[in-house]
């Protein structure tokens, strides 16, 4: 038996996961996403990253970025190293890809602000 808290939405349901004979019984979740989260937490915990990337523009020293999909929790710091090695040199906008398929994990690093287009 494992207890955790669902982080999918702000509701923060307290989850109880019982494993018996390969079957997972999840209780405490208010919706389907809570069950999916609980199963993923046990088998392959995944997280997203929200961070910034350096730019070449002095008026906007850093640009907010995030991942387009979740990555294995254990790879967070590997991906942070990749992101911190990059300097953005063009005026990218919200949703533009900064690093495609980072470390072949199936997620892109994308800009999460139009800051570089707004401040010129």
């Amino acid at each position: 038996m494992k207890e955790t808290v669902c982080i999918v939405c702000p509701r923060g349901c307290k989850l109880r996961i019982d494993e018996s004979g390969g079957d997972l019984a999840v209780t405490g979740n208010a919706c389907r996403r809570g069950r999916d989260f609980a199963v993923s937490e046990l088998k392959d915990p995944r997280r997203t990253i929200c961070t910034t990337v350096r730019t070449a523009f002095p008026e906007v020293p850093v640009l907010p970025v995030r991942l387009s999909a979740e990555i294995p929790k254990a790879r967070i710091f590997d991906v942070m190293r990749e992101i911190n090695a990059v300097t953005v040199e063009s005026r990218v906008g919200r949703g533009d890809i900064i690093i495609k398929d980072v470390l072949s994990l199936g997620a892109d690093v994308i800009a999460s602000s139009n800051l570089l287009k707004e401040i010129q």
């Binding site: 955790t4 808290v5 669902c6 982080i7 702000p10 923060g12 997280r47 929790k73």
Partner: peptide
């Protein structure tokens, strides 16, 4: 703080 933030920001 919110319970989910204790989990995803501290315990993680």
């Amino acid at each position: 703080g919110l319970t989910r933030n204790l989990h995803q920001c501290l315990y993680d």
